[in-house]
Amino acid sequence: MSKNTTETALTDAELVTRFQNGDRSAYEALVDRHSEKAYQIAYGVLGNREDAEEVAQDVFIRIMRALTHFRGDAEFTTWMYRIAINLARNKYRWNKSRGVPQSFSLDAPIEGGDNDSGNPGFDVPSPRLGPDGQAVIGELERNVMVELEKLPDIYREALVMRNMEELDYNQIADLLGCKLGTIKSRIARAREELRRRLNL
């Protein structure tokens, strides 16, 4: 059995122990396993791909520094999620303090061509969700991300965390420090706002 195969079969706790014993490849296995989640959490808070990637990178550097002291009192993922949220929120506050708009698309042209008119900037396809063809659905899904970035931050972060599948409402409430009802409300409002903006 190859080393990589072995590592994919190991639990997070086992990988952590291996890293603590000097096996650096175990840490790379943790990065393989969880970097996407760290990115998604950061994106949920920041609504900005480049900042989210930067935060995801910082998350794993911070974890590497602290992992020797990690005793496994909490799940590795829970710990990682908290670090990701804290770093993303720090980044968010920093952006806010310098007056950077919190939600904008980095896919937009760097200079000129500002399309931030408040309108979606695309032709919303038919609101009918019947079998209108994959092209329409595909376009809708792309538009979802455009509008997601414009959502109020508290709605976006809750909806993004929910759509990571593994996180249920209780976990999201715990990570964000909110009540369960608040999370339920934010996710519903996020969906409704997106539905309204996309004319679905």
Binding site: E36, Y39, Q40, Y43, L129, I137, L140, E141, R142, N143, V144, M145, L148, L159, V160, N163, M164, R191, L194, R195, L198, L200
Partner: peptide, 14 residues
């Protein structure tokens, strides 16, 4: 149905 489209779009976009 709309929630499903939103979920799929978010997952792909993430």
């Amino acid at each position: 149905d709309a929630y499903g489209v939103i979920r799929k779009g978010v997952r792909q976009g993430l």
